[in-house]
Design a protein around this nucleic acid. Structure first.
Lengths: 177, 177
DNA sequence: AAGTGTTGTGCAACTAGTTGCATAAAGCGT
DNA sequence: ACGCTTTATGCAACTAGTTGCACAACACTT
């Protein structure tokens, strides 16, 4: 239920074509709501049929031709409604935690390597977020929209920090006597 | 791809019927891999057909009659294989973060109340985890399986701690000038 | 002009999870 | 014996996300 709203947000930040959206979903928005280009094109079609967005008029917009979309008032209204509406947090689903729990009954053989790999991945992600913070949120930049985007990025940084710490401790715990 | 493995883990910890599993998924395992009873029954049927588990022989096991399952060697082997296999962490998907990002373009009207509600929910969950930690992991209990289950619980505690802190700061940030 | 790579759009089939409802047995009060 | 609630199992339809592949236009090379 959130992909259309992620797309509306992205399009409000800047009108784009499907491929541009795809690229932006690979960073930025995609950091907390990932989507493939197939999903995006499918959803763009649906949003257009519903009158939430429209393709910017351009002559021969056929297959293989870039098609830019912008948000219509109806789309903006729907996004505002959705943003304000109360939603329950959905229960977490984490494979790695499940695997550790399974390892308690079938043994820890082979899982260590993957813990190290995950630690490495989370460290990289953390470094990437911190780089973005340095670049996009220098001290002083504190208009309301900036502050909002900054707390979102902060969540990413803090989460990756949590994972790196937790993985480090877990690895120690497994390698201890 | 993980529900069957969650079920195998639960059944190895203790052979159970569908309803018992459902209850256990409402706490414990379900804290990091939730599932409804419909999913569970469907998956139990599939696992049985595949020869990973079997129903404990019991006379007239028809509809409305309790049916207990236990894991067969093939099931345990599959779980061990899955646990040891390398898997990529899957990108996070968080609606609340997405909504904040959307709020940066359509305004923060109405989202505050929900932030407070989430903060409350996360605080409760944190308290619940801490209660479990006190009850199930008193100092000294440190067999390998205990230590594993404990680090998993620790992840839950640390995550909820992160959310409560982040939500507190975010609420302050939104209410500031 | 023909082949190759890149950019851009999209469909179809599949997998996993959710929602809504149906059914059966057993216990319990009246 | 009758309904009422609880325990227990399960199907069917739907929604969301993933995977695999195809096709069109254009730019660049030879």
């Amino acid at each position: 239920m959130s992909l259309p709203h992620a797309i509306l947000t992205a399009l409000l930040e800047k009108p784009s074509s499907g491929l541009e959206l795809t690229r932006r979903f690979d960073k930025s928005i995609g950091y907390f709501w990932s989507a493939t280009h197939q999903q995006i094109y499918r959803e763009l079609g649906k949003l257009e049929r519903e009158g939430a967005i429209r393709a910017l008029p351009r002559q021969g917009a056929t297959r293989g031709q870039k098609k830019e979309y912008e948000v219509l008032p109806a789309g903006r209204a729907e996004l505002a409604r959705w943003t304000a509406a109360s939603q329950d947090p959905k229960p977490m689903r984490d494979t790695l935690l499940l695997r550790l729990r399974a390892a308690a009954v079938v043994g820890t053989d082979g899982i260590q390597a993957d813990l190290h790999r995950h630690l490495d991945l989370h460290r990289r992600q953390l470094a990437e977020y911190e780089e973005i913070e340095r670049r996009d949120f220098p001290p002083g930049k504190d208009a309301v929209e900036d502050r909002l985007r900054h707390v979102v990025l902060r969540a990413g940084i803090d989460l990756e920090t949590f994972w790196t710490r937790w993985l480090t401790r877990t690895i120690e715990e497994l390698e201890a006597p």
